[in-house]
């Protein structure tokens, strides 16, 4: 019983802490993030098993975690609100070639990261070629470029007749 309770507590606490660290931790994986995930894995492994290294204990942990995972995904299918809470939702960060600065700041994202993604996915060169850049729930940045025929976004002005 001990093992099951411990597994559940650690599962949810870990999920909470990773969500608090922001999506980019999972999507980006800088060397800092990588080391963080390695260490977290190692530390929780000890806490999950306690001093019980039996096969029984290991199986109980695995079964608890797998079942929790399945139940959560079923719950999310039933309730989109719950899905949003658990996974987050996508957010537009660049619109019509213009980065939305407040959003980038809150998401702790830089324009450089958006451009890197644009280069990687579509071979784009400038911010003005990006129609939409979207920070997905998974932490990836997806890019919707302007169709090549139309070229870059219109010149930036406050209003245009």
């Amino acid at each position: 019983m001990d093992t099951v309770v411990r597994s559940l507590i650690i599962y949810f606490v870990l999920w909470g802490l990773l969500r608090l660290s922001g999506r980019r931790t999972l999507g980006k994986l800088t060397s800092f993030d990588f080391v963080l995930l390695l260490i977290v894995g190692g530390v929780t492994q000890r806490a999950l098993l306690g001093q019980d290294y039996s096969v029984t204990s290991a199986l109980l942990v695995v079964i608890t975690l797998v079942l929790t995972d399945v139940m959560l995904s079923l719950l999310q299918r039933e309730s989109p609100r719950l899905g949003r809470f658990f996974n987050g939702e996508p957010m537009i960060v660049v619109e019509d070639g213009r980065p939305l600065v407040t959003r980038l700041k809150h998401a702790r994202l830089t324009a450089d990261e958006v451009l890197a993604s644009a280069r990687r996915l579509h071979g784009l060169e400038r911010m003005e070629q990006i129609k939409y850049a979207i920070l997905e729930a998974s932490g990836d940045i997806s890019i919707i470029p302007y169709p090549a025929a139309r070229g870059a976004a219109p010149e930036r002005t406050a209003t245009s007749a």
Partner: peptide
């Protein structure tokens, strides 16, 4: 007239956003 929306307003295209939820989440963070 071309109008730039406030950064924190919810967009509807290419998908419906809910920035109110997002801002609550940032505060919780």
């Amino acid at each position: 007239r071309v109008e730039f929306m406030d950064d924190l307003a919810s967009r509807t295209y290419p998908f419906q956003e809910d920035m109110a939820f997002q801002q609550r989440w940032w505060r919780a963070e």
